[in-house]
Amino acid sequence: MFIFEMILLIGVGFIAGVINTVSAGGSLITLPALLFLGIPSTEANGTNRVAIVVQSLTSFFTFVRKGQVKLKGNASILIASTLGAIFGALSAITVSDDSFMLILAFTMVVTLCFIIWNPVKAINRPSTLTPLAYALGTAAFILIGFYSGFIQVGVGFYIMIVAILLYKKSFVEATFLKIIVVGLSVSISLIIFAVNGQVLWEIGLILAIGNALGAWVGSKMVLLQRTGWIQFILIVTVITLAGRLLYEALA
Rank of each mutant, 00 (worst) to 15 (best):
I151Q: 08
S56C: 09
L102Y: 06
Y158P: 04
V153K: 02
A163C: 04
Q55L: 12
L129R: 14
Q55S: 13
T47Y: 13
R226C: 03
A135C: 13
G17S: 08
I79L: 14
V181Y: 04
I233P: 10
L177F: 04
S76P: 01
F60M: 05
I235V: 15
L200K: 07
I3A: 12
V186N: 15
I179S: 05
W216H: 14
V238L: 05
I180Q: 00
I235P: 01
S76N: 11
S96D: 12
L224W: 00
V54M: 15
G73Q: 00
K70G: 00
L184H: 01
F61P: 07
G73F: 00
G84R: 02
N74V: 00
L132N: 13
G204C: 10
L9H: 08
R49N: 12
S127I: 09
I39W: 03
A163L: 08
G137L: 06
F4Y: 13
G149F: 05
A51E: 05
I192M: 03
N211F: 08
L9M: 15
I116R: 05
T47A: 11
W229M: 14
I180A: 05
L28I: 04
L9N: 12
G204N: 10
T130N: 13
V153M: 07
G25L: 11
V95S: 07
A51K: 02
V18I: 15
A208H: 08
I180V: 15
A105K: 00
E173C: 02
G243R: 04
G183Y: 08
G11M: 11
M221A: 11
R65H: 09
L35H: 06
E43Q: 14
I203T: 15
K66P: 00
I203W: 05
V95K: 08
P126K: 10
V199I: 12
G243A: 06
K70W: 01
A33E: 04
F141H: 12
E43F: 12
A139V: 14
T21H: 07
V222H: 03
A89M: 10
I123S: 08
T82Q: 04
F60I: 04
S56W: 01
L71V: 01
I191F: 15
A44H: 04
M101D: 08
I192C: 02
R125M: 08
G13Q: 10
L90T: 10
I29E: 06
T21I: 09
N124L: 15
M6Q: 06
